[in-house]
């Protein structure tokens, strides 16, 4: 990561700020503090301002994702299909809420807008494995299996 940060171009235009942030997040899964500071040096925009821009958008995360990154769809269709019960169950099972990581770094959770499989909701994904028409029972089993590993 350090290498990447140090290899940043000299002058980054303000227009490319979001692109730079997206690029970094795609590579490392989150936006690191060090990166924002470096970006601030290269663009001349104060780091607080960069943070304010980045935090405006849902895409950017500032916490390192866990080994198992759980994404739970919070779109309208999934909500109608009783997503709330899953949220409560997840909290009970791994004790984290939206945009948090568990202290041991094993899990992180993110509620994301509609995933696009509304017909099959509620939808959840763990590291790009998708689970559809998820029931509490299935969820328990999935997390239980992961806990064993």
């Amino acid at each position: 990561m350090e290498e990447y940060i140090n290899s940043l171009k000299k002058n980054i235009d303000k227009r490319d700020l979001l692109l730079a942030l997206q690029d970094f997040q795609n590579k490392f899964g989150y936006v690191d503090q060090a990166f924002i500071e470096q970006l601030s040096l290269k663009t001349g925009i104060p780091s607080g301002k960069i943070y304010s821009i980045a935090s405006f958008y849902n895409q950017f995360r500032f916490i390192r994702p866990g080994k198992y990154h759980i994404k739970l769809c919070s779109g309208a269709a999934c909500h109608v299909n009783a997503k709330e019960n899953l949220v409560a169950e997840l909290y009970k099972l791994i004790g984290i809420k939206d945009r948090e990581s568990s202290p041991d770094g094993k899990y992180s959770l993110e509620f994301i807008p509609c995933m696009g499989a509304c017909a099959l909701g509620p939808v959840m994904s763990i590291n790009n494995n998708y689970y559809t028409q998820l029931k509490i029972k299935d969820l328990k089993k999935i997390i239980h299996d992961l806990d064993e590993i």
């Binding site: 303000k14 979001l18 997206q22 405006f56 958008y57 895409q59 807008p113």
Partner: peptide, 24 residues
């Protein structure tokens, strides 16, 4: 342009600010 995701960026003037690299 891959919009980094904010509902209000669907509004046209906000969308434009977002492409310009500011808060949308």
């Amino acid at each position: 342009f891959a919009g980094p995701g904010a509902y209000v960026c669907g509004e046209e003037t906000a969308l434009i600010s977002s492409i310009e690299g500011s808060r949308g």
